[in-house]
């Protein structure tokens, strides 16, 4: 449908264009001055300054494995996270806990637990699905490496990043 484009009637001040140029120049000069005096503070010098302290509680960074307060690995190698992982970044090789072990009644533990951080999309589904609260998304976001092999986090690396989780497990927590 054709329609008439409205042509506004410009005043002479708008027509000679110079006042609006000067107004625009003043606006940019104001920004320049505020930046020069440090009044505007919007830029962060990344490697030296970080936003980490402002990160929200629910931030989803790199997935990690945790141990409980007794030093037992919480993961029981049920492989639910491996199955739910949308990009299939998780590979678990389960093994039976030997009978002489202190935690023999837990029955299973992961022999190998690998997360390919090139594939991981930080969706947090592994954390959500885990019945034992063994896998958590931490706040590490700068996961870098120079080779593909380096980007695959193995069990040792995952526990190193995760550390110890103490406190009530969510499924036994009446408040959650």
């Amino acid at each position: 449908m054709a329609y008439v484009v409205p042509r506004p009637n410009l005043t002479w001040k708008e027509k000679i264009y110079l006042p609006s140029i000067i107004a625009g120049l003043m606006t940019t000069l104001k920004h320049f001055r505020k930046m020069l005096t440090g009044e505007t503070k919007v830029v962060m010098q990344y490697p030296e300054e970080k936003w980490d302290s402002h990160m929200p509680e629910h931030y989803r960074g790199a997935p990690t494995l945790v141990k409980d307060t007794h030093g037992r690995e919480r993961c029981v190698a049920c492989q639910l996270c491996e199955f739910i992982c949308p990009p299939r970044a998780i590979t678990i090789k389960p093994e039976e806990i030997p009978a002489e072990s202190k935690w023999a009644k837990v029955e299973k533990r992961p022999q190998e637990f690998e997360i390919d951080m090139i594939r991981c999309i930080y969706c947090g589904m592994c954390e959500e699905v885990c019945p034992e609260q063994a896998i958590f998304l931490r706040k590490d976001y700068a996961i870098t490496g120079t080779t593909r092999e380096e980007m695959v986090h193995d069990k040792q690396k995952l526990y190193e990043l995760g550390g110890v989780f103490d406190g009530l497990v969510h499924k036994w927590n009446p408040l959650k």
């Binding site: 940019t28 920004h31 320049f32 930046m35 020069l36 505007t40 919007v42 830029v43």
Partner: peptide, 10 residues
């Protein structure tokens, strides 16, 4: 530098 500072960058 000036363009950056006019646009509130560094």
């Amino acid at each position: 530098r000036v363009s950056a500072m006019i646009q509130d960058r560094l």
